[in-house]
Design a protein around this nucleic acid. Structure first.
Lengths: 231, 231
DNA sequence: CGAAAAATGGAATGTCAAATCCAGAATCTG
DNA sequence: CAGATTCTGGATTTGACATTCCATTTTTCG
């Protein structure tokens, strides 16, 4: 790749060579604004005019930094993936035991409570909308999920090596299953505007992990208060 | 509701009174064509012109049967929900034991194999695209998922009552968790074009159920052959 | 049959949004 | 400082797409 900077996926910006510090910041402002809007209204529901206004730039600037809307979308995928996966990597990187896994559960559920079950998973939403209409984005998102999965896996492998997780349990499979439960739970929670599906999906899957554990720490997970009754 | 026919959600068709048999069939043809297209290209990516062509009708006919695009979308949600949930209801309605649950798993995975991991869950995809931009559709889809959940629940409750499922296990929670695992697995499988995530998500969750079971029937789930190596 | 209602065809309209163009202002570089 | 490069503003073009209109044909039903 001839492109010195920018992450794994080239062609996110035009074949333009240098960006001045000012240009760099303008470009970032556009990408961030686009990310915000596309999460709220979807990719198709976001116009470049919207982005233009929120980012506070002129229309020519968008095309100065991105070839076209699709290129901007790829930048949004990159920014979003980095934000979400990055956050979880930090959290999960510090965990080494089952107790930490429950704290991770609480972290996720608390976040959904503050956003009132709106929006679902930013990456999952992008993935669902783009999977069949933008192959490069699909791959980019798939890679993001692999990274996410890997950080869960790292956590479970540590538990496995330390002997907290039963020898015959497969930390790799449990990690993938846990990520799937999280994604499915988030989708149902978003649609029903109710924390229950997410909570139960996570509790059941982590419960499964806990069952394969030697030192059981938290037998009764916190039932949560409020936020919507039945749908 | 003054509208004599049409399912739970009124206003899917114009305030028009009667449909002749011919009209009924044309209307269905439009809705079906729209459903097909919207699953492939997304709701926003499908133009009424596309629908017009696939359904083999003139543009005025679409507006004769539906108030506007949003009304058509709601018809698509209805048609799709009925197709997917209906199919699963039939399958799940006949199941009474753990063995049946594994057959259900195979049924789902085989289907994904034939479609080569393309498309994900039709309802989940619609839900993800519409959740934050079309409230009535969001509710309609949430109801669909509840129906789906209920049919899984029915199956698990039967097992519970028959004593196959441990008395202290909660069939309702397991049903919701299983649906979440399915949805998350489908999303990851769609994005990675690989059956593994779906397979592991389902196997792990059903394995959890199996662990709470008295008569274990199938200790080693079929590992599947082929369809893509790692991403 | 024959009038009313329903169904259909296709052209026309109007809006909106992606993408382009052309200056002109700011910034870098030698 | 000066010339090139980057950055910015805004008007403009172009095309696509949802929606409307009206004329015509077909079906219903008294």
């Amino acid at each position: 790749m001839s492109n010195p900077e920018s992450g794994s996926f080239g062609a996110v910006q035009p074949s333009r060579r240098k960006l001045t510090p000012k240009g760099e910041s303008t470009r970032a402002r556009i990408a961030t604004a686009a990310a915000e809007l596309m999460l709220e209204r979807g990719v198709a529901g976001t116009t470049l005019e919207d982005v233009r206004i929120v980012a506070g730039v002129s229309s020519s600037q968008i095309y100065h930094y991105f070839d076209d809307k699709q290129a901007l979308v790829r930048a949004v995928v990159e920014v979003t993936t980095e934000a979400v996966v990055g956050r979880h990597e930090v959290f999960l990187g510090a965990l080494t035991d089952l107790d930490g896994l429950w704290r991770w559960r609480d972290f996720i559920i608390e976040h959904q409570r503050t956003v009132e079950c709106v929006g679902g998973c930013p990456i999952g939403t992008l993935g669902s909308e783009l999977a069949e209409i933008d192959a490069p984005s699909r791959v980019q998102i798939a890679v993001g999920f692999r990274r996410w999965e890997a950080s869960i896996r790292g956590c479970l492998r540590t538990m496995h090596e330390r002997g907290e997780l039963a020898a015959d349990a497969d930390p790799d499979e449990l990690a993938l299953a846990l990520l799937a439960a999280l994604q499915g739970g988030l989708l149902l929670t978003q649609l029903q505007r109710d924390l229950t599906p997410l909570r139960i999906a996570l509790d059941t899957m982590i419960g499964q992990i806990a069952a394969r554990t030697t030192a059981v720490r938290r037998p009764t997970p916190t039932p949560d208060r409020g936020t919507a009754g039945a749908g």
